[in-house]
């Protein structure tokens, strides 16, 4: 099982290395969204607005990035994978790869965000919890949206359906990470934000378990 997951993970990496344009596309999406915000916002932002805009951009970037994880493969390759690997390995590998992608994407987004919208609101932030909330937020979006992406791909209705199905389900995660990062921006340390990290971790575990349990039913046709 473990080696299978690792092999599938390697397959994902190889596929993405072959399609480097997709990665570039994701980054370009984030950068253009942030540039639009930069143009739209002329004054310096309040801390909570700064935080809110960042999470909204990251949320939509996550929808974009994770929609790919199941929608890029055609019927033939899916059938091939189905005969080769256990569905649970597939969903674990996809969730893992999605998490890695989102981890990188969220940290890169933070970098661009600081570039375009300034770092003034981070004046008295506690850096550790803030960066952790950004990283965990990205990973959490990936955990929740992997199964949704699979359902939307199976329904054959693309990214529109994924947004409708995913939005209410991702809300708990979004609320938890937004609160955690807001608290961190306001300068509260690990003890103040700990509850939220615990909640995010618990949500991750529950969603991954559900995905692991339910995916085999989704996979067979």
């Amino acid at each position: 099982m473990r080696s299978e997951v690792l092999q599938l993970l390697r397959l994902e990496v190889a596929l993405d290395l072959r399609q480097r344009a997709a990665w570039g596309g994701m980054l370009l999406y984030v950068v253009s969204a942030m540039y639009v915000c930069h143009l739209a916002v002329s004054d310096s932002l309040s801390r909570s607005t700064w935080n809110a805009i960042f999470w909204i951009i990251l949320l939509f970037a996550a929808f974009n990035a994770l929609a790919r994880s199941f929608q890029r493969e055609d019927q033939g390759r899916q059938l091939y994978l189905y005969t080769m690997a256990h569905p649970r390995s597939v969903v674990l590998a996809r969730a893992l790869y999605g998490s890695i992608t989102m981890l990188a994407l969220s940290l890169l987004s933070l970098l661009f965000y600081l570039l375009f919208l300034g770092s003034d609101p981070m004046g008295d932030a506690s850096m550790g919890p803030f960066v952790a909330s950004v990283a965990l937020g990205g990973v959490g979006f990936a955990a929740v949206l992997t199964l949704i992406s699979a359902i939307a791909a199976r329904a054959g209705n693309g990214i529109g359906l994924m947004a409708i199905l995913g939005f209410p389900i991702v809300l708990p995660m979004l609320l938890a990470v937004m609160r955690a990062s807001q608290l961190a921006l306001d300068g509260s340390g690990w003890s103040g934000t700990g509850y939220y990290f615990l909640a995010i971790g618990a949500l991750d575990v529950v969603t991954l378990t559900l995905a692991w349990l339910l995916f085999p039913y989704l996979w067979r046709d």
Binding site: I169, L171, P172, A199, V206, T207
Partner: peptide, 20 residues
């Protein structure tokens, strides 16, 4: 599948939300 996934997450949300 969506119903099961959503129901469990919704319950968690409703339980955890008042603390947030």
């Amino acid at each position: 599948i969506y119903n099961i996934f959503a129901y469990v997450l919704m319950l968690l949300f409703i339980m955890a939300l008042p603390r947030m």
